[in-house]
């Protein structure tokens, strides 16, 4: 078969010559290699002080977006839960009451919305399925916990705060839905 990478080596088991049997040249060559590595630049990122730059398509912890007036986008249609291959998303819907128009954008909203972060595989299908631009994956990292049930994120953790919006412009630009 023709070599694809040009890196293949033909192996043979012919007896070693005397020069090879002394092993010393091979040992010296090995030591030269390791010495070269000693002088190389380290590629380690010392985490708490430095952080890695995430790719724009990075898929981390989810966020439930609000619109410009601070109303929740989610209408609890359940498409994300259907799309989710890991079955990590559950929600219950509720009807918007009078006087709640400043909280929810449409007549139906999610009274509870839970993502199990232990089940979630961060595939981003929920984001693609969402017709209302409500759920997005961000470049935030899901933190570690001591208890399993703390990994079930409710609305308290998922919905962005009104005065502390999560920036998802990177994902909007890379995603398909740039038209409004």
């Amino acid at each position: 078969m023709e070599s694809l990478t040009n890196r293949k080596k033909v192996v043979s088991d012919k007896p070693m010559t005397l020069w090879e049997k002394i092993y010393i040249p091979a040992i010296v060559a090995g030591m030269v290699t390791t010495f070269k590595h000693m002088l190389r630049r380290r590629k380690t990122i010392k985490y708490p002080e430095e952080t890695r730059v995430f790719a724009p398509v990075y898929r981390g912890q989810h966020v439930l977006k609000r619109d410009e007036q601070g109303r929740e986008n989610c209408t609890a249609c359940g498409l994300c839960a259907v799309a989710c291959p890991a079955e990590a998303i559950t929600m219950t819907s509720a009807e918007r009451q009078k006087g709640e128009e400043h909280l929810y954008r449409e007549e139906k909203y999610a009274s509870s919305y839970e993502i199990n972060m232990l089940r979630c595989i961060f595939c981003g299908l929920c984001e693609e399925a969402c017709p209302k631009e409500a759920v997005f994956l961000t470049d935030r990292i899901v933190t570690t916990e001591f208890e399993r049930d703390e990994f079930i994120y409710g609305k308290d953790k998922l919905v962005e705060a009104i005065d502390d919006r999560i920036d998802i412009t990177k994902r909007q630009f890379t995603g398909k839905r740039t038209e409004k």
Binding site: T34, H37, M38, R40, R42, K43, T44, K46
Partner: peptide, 13 residues
Amino acid sequence: KLAAWIQDRVGPD
């Protein structure tokens, strides 16, 4: 440290 340098790591720091 030396082991780390040879293996392109940082070592105890």
